[in-house]
Design a protein around this nucleic acid. Sequence first.
RNA 1: GGAGAGGUACCGAAGUGGUCAUAACGGGUCCGCCUCGAAAGCGGAUUGGCUCUUCACGGGGCCACGUGGGUUCGAAUCCCACCCUCUCCGCCA
Length: 429
Amino acid sequence: MLDLNNIKVNKEDIEKKYRERGAEILLDSIIELDAERRRCIVKSDELKHLKKEVSREIGVIQKSGQLPADKIEHMKEISQQIKELDTLLDELEVKIREQLLFLPNIPHESVPVGKEASDNREIRRWGNPPVIKFQPKTHIELGTSLGILDFERGAKIAQTRFTLSKGIGARLERALINFMIDIQTRKFHCIEVLPPFLVNRTSMEGTGQLPKFEIDLFKTQDPELYLIPTAEVPLTNIFYDEVLLLSQLPVYLTAYSPCFRKEAGTYGAETRGLIRQHQFNKVEVVKIVTPDTSYDELEYLTGQAEEILRRLNLHYRIMSLCTGDLGFSAAKTYDIEVWCPGQNSFVEISSCSNFEDFQARRARIRYKPAPKAKPEFVHTLNGSALAIGRTVVALLENYQQEDGSVIIPEALLPYLDGVNKIEKNEGMF
RNA sequence: GGAGAGGUACCGAAGUGGUCAUAACGGGUCCGCCUCGAAAGCGGAUUGGCUCUUCACGGGGCCACGUGGGUUCGAAUCCCACCCUCUCCGCCA
């Protein structure tokens, strides 16, 4: 959510930034609504002031045994007027809030201007693609023939785009979760959290999934709760409507969670395989920081995700998303794309974003810069470290052998009791 | 699921229809005085939002007693709905 005062003062600027995002959004109506709102407040406050005074007088007079009928009549009128004004005020505030909630964040000045994914800017690369002297298979072929991934039965049990991991495949995912969380807690000092996987509407609004992206979310009824599309939602909302002390910042959090996404409108693209699923596992990092540090923190955060890929020795590149490709709530985002030989392309495996005060404003997360100072909004960041399913894709495709087996990289051996190779299991159902 | 109790400032808690919620009272925390130093004591400070005014410093007004409605000239106080917490019973991983 943007600051209304900022909108008033920098209207032209913000409209220009939105155009760079590919959105033609005019801010005149919201500014006019706000002006009307403030006119209403002035009138209403004056009447309330009067009401207070007269009400006090009535109390005094009645105490002395008299009945101030004229004043009571007067009060009826005042109360009626206040009621009407406040009703109008409510309507205005609802309208303003509705509009504000649909305004995307403003891209940071360092974000490359562009229309679509092809305009994203490559920042750096690490490592090299593996040398594979045969026709590489996809993770779908590998996983199915090894008996560790079962797409058909996943679809049978639930629906298409739900997958079953079996045997060493399931164990590999569990190992990856522990491996990633251990790095984030031990090396990067994150606090580990195991959050609720269902959240209420308010939380979804706090981080910006709602009201605009209802169509992408799974929802329960009675009670109405939403399945989280990322642990970012419960983690960031931990501090919903709280005022933190400066000494409490920064807060670094990490959590494993399954993620549930409807992926509306993506059928036809990547319907097969692990890359686009309705449910997948992910380890997420969330940072709550002071505004002056958030861009440094974005760089560190990206490094925290990179660390995992380096330890797994997977080739990747960092992309700075262009204005047109940026997510709704983000001011700046780095995507990390891992090389996948079976896809013969880079695949997004992490997305690290600085939201500045966009989410903080929605979720009212503030801090006191000094003991007596007014609370100010924090900056929030989050990044995947990493998406587990896609890490499995990368491992299978990068470490595949000619005979269809897959070598496990050394960093994971402690998490797999030394199992260093996935081979075909004839006994697997 | 059934029965009951409760939600007021950093914490405990009073207030059950008016005339100060900058919220009694107690505690905590911070600052000052006192002291060689400390304790005690004394004095002061200690929620947030909206808005008007001012170049600014500052000053004024309004709102908030879990949330939202209602009754009333007037609601923390009465009524309704919802949310949350606690106790007991039942059920349960």
